[in-house]
Design a protein around this nucleic acid. Structure first.
Lengths: 221, 221
DNA sequence: AAATAAATTTAGACAAACCTAAAAATATTT
DNA sequence: AAATATTTTTAGGTTTGTCTAAATTTATTT
């Protein structure tokens, strides 16, 4: 049996993993929707993935990734997120433009490539969307991520993710110079409208609204 | 009709281009051999490539790339060589290990990606094997630069570039007194370990290993 | 518990890219 | 110019991943 997975098989594994971590309902239809395909195609693939011992699957009953499948998913996610990090930090892409390209790059299969890429990037723990990057052994770093409001005054945090990724929001963040990885500090919190005066390194202080602030997450020690 | 080419179609185009530039004999069998496939499969693909207006093809008569096909080939080669350059200069791969990985990366289709990669690498003109990198418009820079191994015995060359720029490599080159612009000559090539006895002006002859030699490129007339 | 609805699977087809074996066209010998 | 060899193409089949339409199973109503 073929050890190397096809692009399609990898995409199924990744989607099952994603659905499992987002919602409890993982069934043929939801997977079909996630992958923009039809339920019948999903069933076909489920049979194959079972044969390759990547999922538990009993017809009409349901399915889920087993240990091997989960490890496979994490390895694909690792590749995806490292490439996203590369595209943003080295090539200067905006973080909302990199997903589609990383979807292609993630299927390039060389182990050595990913190892060297990881080293080159400085073993990053978080991708440009603020999502954790699994390590070589498939372990997800535990990141103590908190809402910007919970960051104590005058304590430095590092922007880790933004929950609203609408173009409007991204435009606003760009304007303020806020991006994943930015060092951020709260100078003052105004009770009146819950706005915050913040300070980013190498930038003058500025004020952001509650609206904006509540979508920003940071991690700190 | 589908504008985007499949990986397989791209590989055929690339191979036809390669055979055309290396030998005059480009026929079904030689292409089959080049691609590790069978003549019947080649015929199938030739029909498709003709349909997509990438080649001239008349059954039993022969085939060759037309303008569109040639431009396509050059764009694939551009991607391939830029990735090779990246793998060597940024990730620290040895130049003889990058081909297989670049074969995969070259099929990632984003224009923006290649544009930014090119800028990031400083618009290199030559890949780590000493082959020219086509520009955005598919033009090949004319460069009389060759690997030190390809310099005929007793002929003088001028060091033009070094593909491995690690501190270790640079230390070694410094030790030998090799720098960009140095006049260099090969006195003798040892088959046993592929090491070279070289002579630099105003210095005694010395022996360098294959490891070192394969990273050195020279101009000569 | 029967009827209806929803989800899932099977059956059978299709396109892409490959294959083998046989046929057709072209080249080379004799 | 016949006979033989080589090259190329066709015919028909396989695998992967997809599809539609129909059948089956499970879930929900009435």
């Amino acid at each position: 049996m073929n050890l190397k997975l096809s692009t399609s098989e990898e995409n199924y594994i990744k989607s099952i993993y994603h659905l499992q971590s987002v919602s409890d309902i993982v069934n043929t239809n939801s997977l079909a929707k996630e992958l923009n395909t039809k339920a019948a195609s999903v069933t076909d693939m489920l049979k194959k993935l079972k044969l390759k011992k990547l999922i538990q699957y009993e017809r009409y009953y349901g399915f889920k990734l087993n240990d091997k499948g989960t490890q496979t998913a994490l390895s694909i996610i690792r590749r995806h997120r490292l490439w996203e990090y590369f595209l943003v930090s080295k090539l200067g892409f905006d973080w909302d433009k990199v997903h589609i390209i990383a979807e292609e790059l993630e299927h390039v299969s060389s182990m050595e490539l990913i190892k060297k890429l990881d080293t080159y990037l400085g073993n990053p723990k978080i991708d440009p969307h603020g999502d954790p990057i699994p390590d070589v052994n498939g372990r997800l770093p535990v990141i103590k991520q908190i809402n910007l409001f919970k960051l104590p005054l005058k304590k430095t945090g590092i922007v880790s993710s933004v929950s609203n990724q609408s173009p409007q929001m991204l435009e606003m963040l760009k304007h303020y110079g806020i991006r994943i990885g930015s060092q951020i500090k709260i100078n003052k919190a105004f009770d009146f409208d819950r706005s915050l005066e913040i300070k980013l390194s190498k930038q003058p202080a500025c004020i952001i609204s509650e609206q904006v602030a509540k979508n920003i997450f940071v991690y700190h020690d």
